[in-house]
Design a protein around this nucleic acid. Structure first.
Lengths: 389, 389
DNA sequence: AAAAGTATCGGTAACGTTTGCGGATACGTT
DNA sequence: AACGTATCCGCAAACGTTACCGATACTTTT
């Protein structure tokens, strides 16, 4: 007969489940819970649904403790080769798969890097993902990708999900709508590594990986000027994106350097959807004093304009020069080939990934946030080579 | 003065960290560790690194228990509106972010779907991802993407990582190398939902989402025949992929239907890299008795052949008809436009995602594994329209 | 031969959450 | 006045791991 350790009552003891494979009891009199190491047969561990074999199962079958199993599985020095082999064999026999969730919880580290991109339509972001993926997997990290779909609300919700999942670091490229940055400053406050790329902003203290948009735009426009184009329009992106502002700045600087007049009604800034590109392109091509060249913020817009020009019977590059940005695969094959700025997409992904790994390794934030500017390349094709020159 | 409970020594007691907010001591004489419930002020709960605020913190600050906080945060009916509001306010004030890891561990459910794709080079898989992403996020699921990079070893390692991370379901498209399927049969054995798409196999009992490759290839080749091409070669993919076999089957069937002779040396099956495409293309175009049309397994290969034909001065479509597969963006812009088979990529992603959600909801595997075949569309452009007809 | 070191292994707190069960009130009903 | 009931909340087990602190049995050193 069992006596309650607290109230010393006898006959009021009831079973109250199992704890650590030992029978647990409760005194119905004083409601005191306690455990007794009995030799009673513990019922086989059956989960409600289906049971994934755990370290405890291996321990029980091998006759050692959980800690020994854990150490054996990790090749800890404290474990003798024999027991280690026994544990490994049993693990294989029971088809054991470690539970990363439990591991992550106790280590408060997930070995996962999060990445939030605004879209998947162009080749740009998939390529960046490829680059980052390559670096991260080589270092044993996983990559979780979320897509904000150019929506600020989704972006915020994504960052929350990333936080909840306790990722070790976040790589993010902002949406066109993003004008508020509290959801990113949280990461800084929590000390969670954060790297911005491509679509960056100055309002959050974090490293940024960008390309030399200013220079690239400058070179692109200067290239048009040197090919004899006089009145160059700019179809730009939304101005809350630094990318758009930089490209606009490069456009203006090139015109100024060569003493060209900047006509504000030939500068359009807006969202980058295909539909918008058609609307803006129509506007530009139907202007009374039509531009003789267009520098577009991306290749999709540039190609849209080329197609529209063909419909209107405007010859490229004679009557209209076109330069795009990003070097989409189709830009090489369209006739005439589209002159464009090639971005080192894979390199961008690699650089951001390497940077965030550095931040994770450096436990103290010794290095201040910096900016890494990668070089672009102007790919000259037929759409900007006026034959008359 | 504290006395050691074991050796009864006095003056040898030193502090040895905290356990459960109680001071822990060690006797330097007998090296015995013990705990004393003292009224001493316990230092504020500070983790070694940085502390994320937990439910316990909210409970302590609000003066209620953890369970009440947990229930309040989830809107449980047992909690009064006042305490609920108090908890919510405190949670906001302390900037609480739930720990998904702990949640997942106790629920043994991660609300995450895994997806393994072989490559990111073509538009195909990014588009599939887009489609699946759309469905899954709408249902509150996350999507973790891994890339096997056409390597069987990486694919196996990826599936292991997915298992360890306890995803709720897996969407996978196999690599070109995959000939063994134990790593997938594990999912079946564990009862983890699994859906194959595009690159599927018959050796694993799981739903498959594919396109009508046989029909599509048949129609493509028949289209060439009807346009007057006589000797049609096939540049196919590796034969361990069902996709390749189906397309080959369609190719053969079309030729047979129209009484064409099947010349085995004009059928090449192999890996799909760009380099290989050039090598095989060169072989085909330099054959003594050159084919007058080529049906390629994908657009990249088809375009490679078109470029090579241009170099050799072979005119398309007059001297050589070309048909590709997948309708890459560049295929519309190359001159002449590439005739190709458009796959419903977004639809494939949506279908696989919907299917796996169904499997998750249906706790019992009532429905047997099935196959869903989506329709393709033959996009006819200039590369297969011989003007002489 | 006593003391000290070494090799192995076990016990258990801790990670942060959910949840079943029971306790403590307060109120309305015989 | 006694009882039933509804409301609200707390206790502690459970999820599967890791790692710290001891414990034991040998082996080596003084």
């Amino acid at each position: 007969m069992v006596r309650c350790p607290k109230c010393a009552q006898v006959g009021t003891i009831m079973k109250a489940g199992y704890v650590r494979n030992k029978q647990r009891y409760v005194c119905k009199s004083c409601n005191y819970f306690f455990t007794i190491a009995s030799s009673e047969q513990v019922p086989s561990r059956q989960k409600n649904h289906r049971h994934q074999t755990t370290i405890i199962d291996i321990a029980r079958s091998t006759g050692v403790s959980n800690s020994t199993v854990s150490r054996a599985l990790h090749g800890h020095a404290d474990i003798s080769p024999e027991t280690r082999q026994a544990v490994l064999d049993m693990a294989a026999q029971l088809d054991y798969q470690p539970n990363q969730l439990a591991y992550n919880l106790v280590k408060s580290k997930t070995n996962t890097i999060g990445m939030i991109v605004p879209e998947f339509h162009n080749r740009f972001f998939p390529n960046v993902i490829m680059g980052a993926h390559q670096i991260l997997t080589a270092e044993g990290y996983n990559l979780t990708i979320m897509q904000s779909n150019e929506s600020f609300a989704v972006e915020v919700s994504n960052t929350k999900a990333m936080l909840a999942n306790r990722i070790d670091g976040l790589l993010i490229s902002l949406t066109q709508e993003t004008n508020s940055f509290e959801h990113l400053q949280v990461f800084e406050k929590r000390g969670i590594p954060l790297v911005l790329f491509n679509r960056v902003c100055d309002d959050v203290k974090a490293p940024k990986v960008v390309v030399n948009d200013f220079e690239a735009a400058f070179m692109a426009v200067e290239h048009l000027i040197l090919n004899g184009y006089e009145r160059i329009a700019h179809l730009g992106g939304p101005l809350n994106l630094l990318v758009s502002r930089e490209r606009l700045r490069g456009y203006r600087a090139a015109l100024e350097k060569h003493g060209k007049n900047i006509e504000e009604d030939m500068i359009i800034q807006g969202m980058l959807s295909q539909q918008k590109a058609r609307i803006y392109g129509k506007y530009l091509l139907e202007l009374e004093n039509r531009p003789d060249a267009i520098f577009a913020v991306n290749d999709s817009a540039a190609i849209e304009i080329m197609l529209m020009a063909k419909e209107k019977g405007i010859s490229i590059p004679e009557e209209l020069g076109v330069v795009g940005f990003s070097d989409n695969p189709e830009s090489a094959y369209i006739g005439p080939g589209l002159t464009t700025v090639r971005q080192p997409t894979i390199e961008i992904g690699k650089t951001t990934a390497q940077w965030i790994l550095q931040m994770i390794d450096a436990d103290e934030e010794m290095a201040l946030p910096q900016e890494r500017i990668l070089k672009t390349e102007l790919i000259i094709r037929g759409s900007s080579l006026r034959s008359g020159i």
